[in-house]
Design a protein around this nucleic acid. Structure first.
Lengths: 217, 217
DNA sequence: CTCGATAAGTACCGTACGGTACGGTTCGTG
DNA sequence: CACGAACCGTACCGTACGGTACTTATCGAG
């Protein structure tokens, strides 16, 4: 499953700078503030160039998503033999990273944008966002819990389902609340810790439960 | 269950009909389709009346949320002694109801609307939606798991946190995916069942685990 | 029947946005 | 130097929307 195929985004430095300014506008003022004239002004370029580079407004939005996704590279940890504390730690780091990503200004702004357009464009932006924005971090988590199972530390039938469980335990309704403009707790560490503990209690093997001290919790 | 407090929306029948038409427009065509002229045309009323009744466009949007919330009354089950199968069943019914509500056309459209406005109006609509739309169903679940604890079937320290866990297990990222335009699985029953099983495994007492057959799962 | 209130229907206004066209400027290349 | 491509800045166009004003019609009260 070669990822790329159609999409070879790779914009020029100048275009990247423009996209960066566009993201800034979007974060600051929401979709309403993201006008072609505004982007051109903020980026010191002409509207004509915008249309030459990105086709139309939708093309600009898509490019913004691709650009942002290209910046959020996540490292893939592997190799090293997994121990129970190691797995727990890795899961907690993942959980905190996930929460940090989801609560980021740009992420929230782009998600709001895509949600707003979902009824209109046949969810083109939404698909783009789910594809580009989540694939990386999803794969990282999937690799981690698969490794946990191979090491005999986790037990589950369906890895995808186990991951969805982990995701739900970590995020719950936090993402939607933030999208709606709420600013809930900011103690992501505690939240991550609790979520991982619950996940291990659900999918940890006897060995894991014993070593993590979850047998009598 | 009097909804109490500040808000006594209570629009006239005529206004309710207008709001209903407005919701229909919103569901069908998204926010872009929800123009004052369009609502007036669809509801056979004049724009002037719209402005007299609802003040301005934002007032209309708020009224739409209040109107929809007033229609989604949820019954509160109580009394009857809780057994393990009873609790499990009630939880599954709740989970399915929650999924049905979140995946409803009108709910999704209103959530998209509020998300789209979140950057603009200081999340006024978002707060309205979280307040009106969720309070009812939240209370129902809270009452249920509190009753479960009182009956010695559930164990947890913080009821709110336990509820968030349940919510995350049920919904995971489904809500956001749907808001983004994705149409994932529709087998809510299986999803509800799995979520409840996980929740009981996390927060069930020994008695519950034994009776629900979760000790060796 | 008359009066006043309510509201439908329509015409109108200002504004703002997406998209296009054009003149002027920079800069790389032969 | 000369030429052309890329591009900035701006002016422009058509359209669509939010909001207001005005005319007409319905209807209940006296």
């Amino acid at each position: 499953m070669q990822a790329d195929s159609a999409t070879a985004p790779e914009f020029s430095p100048r275009q990247n700078a423009v996209l960066s300014q566009a993201l800034r506008l979007l974060v600051d003022g929401g979709e309403k503030a993201l006008t072609t004239a505004g982007v051109a002004r903020a980026a010191n370029c002409s509207k004509e160039s915008l249309y030459k580079w990105f086709g139309d407004r939708d093309g600009l939005l898509s490019a913004m998503i691709a650009f942002q996704a290209s910046k959020v590279r996540t490292f893939e940890r592997d190799g090293e033999r997994l121990t129970v504390p190691g797995l727990q730690d890795h899961l907690e780091v993942f959980a905190k990273d996930l929460l940090d990503v989801l609560s980021g200004d740009v992420s929230l702004a782009l998600n709001r944008l895509a949600v707003g357009q979902a009824s209109r464009d046949g969810s083109k932006l939404g698909r783009l966002l789910m594809e580009h924005g989540r694939r990386q971090i999803d794969r990282r988590a999937r690799a981690l819990i698969d490794a946990g199972r191979r090491a005999g530390l986790l037990a589950f039938d369906d890895g995808e389902e186990a991951y969805r469980t982990l995701y739900g335990l970590i995020v719950s309704d936090l993402h939607v609340r933030m999208l709606l403009g709420d600013h809930p707790e900011t103690d992501f560490s505690q939240r991550a810790e609790r979520a991982v503990r619950a996940f291990l209690k659900l999918h940890g093997t006897a060995k894991t439960l014993a070593e993590a001290g979850l047998t009598a919790a």
